[in-house]
Each structure stands twice: as structure tokens, then as C-alpha cells.
């Protein structure tokens, strides 16, 4: 059974040249047609056909800016496709930009609570999870402090502990393994493994090709917003590294 299906999906961004457009500019543009266009288009994804089946572990690789994160956000339902169709059967849990979205005046405990709510917890269900989350983060008494005073590393720990305290159906991950100090990273990796083993399907973006080949049986290679290759992880990684090396040679020559 397919859990996720993308049919010929494309996504086009309108990128603004000078930050946000003001109403004034918009009116001026309307009045004087010849005034410069303030936006240009970026074809972030094009002609993506993708099916993810029950029990599958799918890896996504590609250069920076190839559209990997965009594809994940589209799968998670944050970006709507400009063309094509996205079908999802199941609940998606996404782990990206996890260190964003804290209420800085609230304490760590409170942040655990309502981040949990956003992830679909209820006051009853989150109560049971609060202590395990706190324990995993190892933040101890810091949790009583407003998040405002946390260091970047502490924030990542807290974010990771909350975001991974879930029972995922379809799990979407964007390279969050590099969280915190060494000891925490090892713990985090264990946690991710157990999450991935429980999920009905997993989609991962990573530059860590070695761990990707261990985690996923299938991979796709994204290049300039298109799927360049799809197949068994080892084959795709081989083709990808081959191309990267060739590129390096060409530059050296």
C-alpha cells in the first residue's frame, strides 16, 4: 500500500528581489507598467513522481540547493504544489527547523507542554511525556528558567527531545542528527533509530552518505529540482559520488 504519492508535482517560487513588496510599490507598478519587475521565479521542483510504500525507508541526496528540503516540506504539507497532485494516507511527523518556535518568555517546562500540543498531544497525554522529555534533554533545573536564557546547544537539546517524543506514522527528517554535544549526539542517534524503526515509513534527507546507506534501502537523487536517479541506495550513492568526483576532476584540470 502506498502511503505517499506525488504525481508529476512541480513547485515554483516567486522570489522577491528586495524583501517584501509594499502596497505603495504594488500601486506604482500598476500605474507605471514599465517599472522594474520586483519578483523573479524559481522552479524549485519539477516533474516529481514519487511513491512511498508501507515500511519503506527512503533517502534523498543531492547538492545544496537541489530542492531536497523543499521536497520534504512539500511532502509534509507545508508547501502546496504549484502543479501536480500530492496524496498522503496517514499522519505525518516532520523534524526540521526544530530549534525554531519557542516562546522565549515561557519556561522550558511550558515550552514542552505547548510544543506537545502543536504535535497533537492533549493535556492528559502530554502529562505522561513531560518527565521522559525532560530526562532525555538532561536540562534539569534549567527547565524552570525562561527559554530566553538558554544557550543554542540547550535549545537544540530541548527541541530535539520534544520533537522526537512522538509515535510517528510517516516520519520526515531533515538532517537533525547533529544535535548538541558528542554525548548527546550518540543518544540522539539512538533515539532516531528507534523512531525510524517504529514508523510506517521514513523519508530522510542527509549529506551523511554512509549512515544513509545503512538506514535506507531506497534513495533518490535530486538535481536542480528534478529526480535524476532513483533505485537501491548503494547504486544511487555510487552514481552520485561518481558525478561529484568527476566534477572535482574537471575543476582541477
Amino acid at each position: 500500500m502506498s502511503l505517499i504519492q506525488l504525481d508529476d508535482v512541480g513547485l515554483r517560487f516567486n522570489v522577491r528581489r528586495f524583501g517584501r513588496i509594499s502596497f505603495k510599490e504594488y500601486m506604482l507598478q500598476g500605474l507605471f507598467r514599465r517599472s522594474k519587475k520586483t519578483t523573479f521565479e524559481v522552479q524549485a521542483l519539477e516533474g516529481i513522481n514519487l511513491t512511498v510504500h508501507e515500511g519503506e525507508r527512503l533517502g534523498i541526496i543531492g547538492h545544496n540547493g537541489a530542492g531536497k528540503s523543499t521536497l520534504l516540506k512539500l511532502l509534509a504539507g507545508i508547501y502546496p504544489p504549484t502543479v501536480g497532485r500530492r496524496r498522503v494516507a496517514g499522519q505525518i511527523s516532520a523534524l526540521f527547523e526544530i530549534s525554531l518556535g519557542f516562546e522565549h518568555d515561557a519556561s522550558g517546562w511550558e515550552n514542552i507542554m505547548y510544543r506537545g500540543y502543536l504535535q497533537g498531544e492533549t493535556p492528559q497525554s502530554i502529562r505522561a511525556k513531560m518527565q521522559p522529555i525532560a530526562d532525555f534533554s538532561e536540562l534539569g533545573d534549567f527547565l524552570n528558567m525562561p527559554v530566553r536564557y538558554y544557550s543554542a546547544g540547550m535549545l537544540v537539546r530541548l527541541a530535539f527531545s520534544i520533537a522526537t517524543a512522538i509515535d510517528p506514522e510517516i516520519l520526515i527528517i531533515d538532517e537533525v542528527l547533529s544535535a548538541g554535544d558528542l554525548a548527546f549526539q550518540a543518544k540522539a542517534r539512538e533515539r532516531m533509530k528507534s523512531l525510524m524503526s517504529r514508523a510506517r515509513a521514513v523519508i530522510v534527507v542527509s549529506h551523511d552518505l554512509a549512515s544513509l546507506s545503512m538506514l535506507c534501502e531506497r534513495a533518490i537523487w535530486l538535481d536542480h529540482g528534478r529526480i535524476r536517479m532513483t533505485g537501491p541506495t548503494a547504486d544511487v550513492i555510487a552514481a552520485y559520488t561518481n558525478q561529484v568526483n568527476q566534477g572535482a576532476h574537471r575543476q582541477a584540470a
Binding site: A76, G77, I78, A94, F96, E97, I98, L100, G101, F102, L118, Q119
Partner: peptide
């Protein structure tokens, strides 16, 4: 914004 970027609510 930071919630909107993470969760399709």
C-alpha cells in the same frame, strides 16, 4: 511564523 514553517496547521 516559526510554527507555520514547521506544522501544517
Amino acid at each position: 511564523e516559526s510554527y507555520i514553517r514547521q506544522h501544517p496547521a
